[in-house]
C-alpha cells in the first residue's frame, strides 16, 4: 500500500538558483563598515590595545601570524588614510581614533 513511484523527486530545487550574486555592493550586513576583513582585524587589535603609545607594527604582525607584512601594512595605510588610526611615537606605532 506504499505510494511507490518516483513522483516526488525533490531535486529540482536549485536548478534556477545560480547566478544570484546581487548582494555584493549593497550596504552589506557584515561586521565591517566598508573595511576588508584584514583591515577590520587590524583596526580591532589597535582599538583593543591599552597602552598610550599604541600598537606597534611588530606586535600587529605577531597578533596576526596568518597575514603577511605587506597585507598588514596595506591595512594600516588604509586605516590611517581613512582616519581610523594614526601613528604615534613613530611610524610603526598606531592608535585608534575610534576608541571612545
Amino acid at each position: 500500500s506504499k505510494p511507490s513511484g518516483p513522483l516526488i523527486m525533490g531535486n529540482s530545487v536549485g536548478a534556477s538558483g545560480m547566478g544570484d550574486m546581487g548582494s555584493l555592493g549593497g550596504s552589506g550586513s557584515g561586521p565591517t563598515n566598508g573595511l576588508t576583513l584584514h583591515q577590520s582585524q587590524v583596526l580591532n587589535l589597535i582599538k583593543a590595545y591599552p597602552k598610550p603609545e599604541g600598537l606597534s607594527f611588530q606586535e600587529l604582525r605577531s597578533q596576526l601570524p596568518n597575514l603577511n607584512a605587506s597585507v598588514i601594512k596595506q591595512a594600516v595605510d588604509f586605516l590611517s588614510n581613512e582616519g581610523h588610526i594614526y601613528s604615534t611615537v613613530d611610524d610603526e606605532h598606531f592608535k585608534s581614533t575610534d576608541a571612545e
Partner: peptide, 20 residues
C-alpha cells in the same frame, strides 16, 4: 609628543571628512 597630537587631530579630521 606634539607630533602625536597633531597626527591624532589630522586623523580625526580625516575621519570626520569620511563621515561628512
Amino acid at each position: 609628543l606634539e607630533r602625536i597630537r597633531r597626527n591624532k587631530e589630522a586623523a580625526l579630521l580625516r575621519l570626520a571628512a569620511r563621515h561628512a
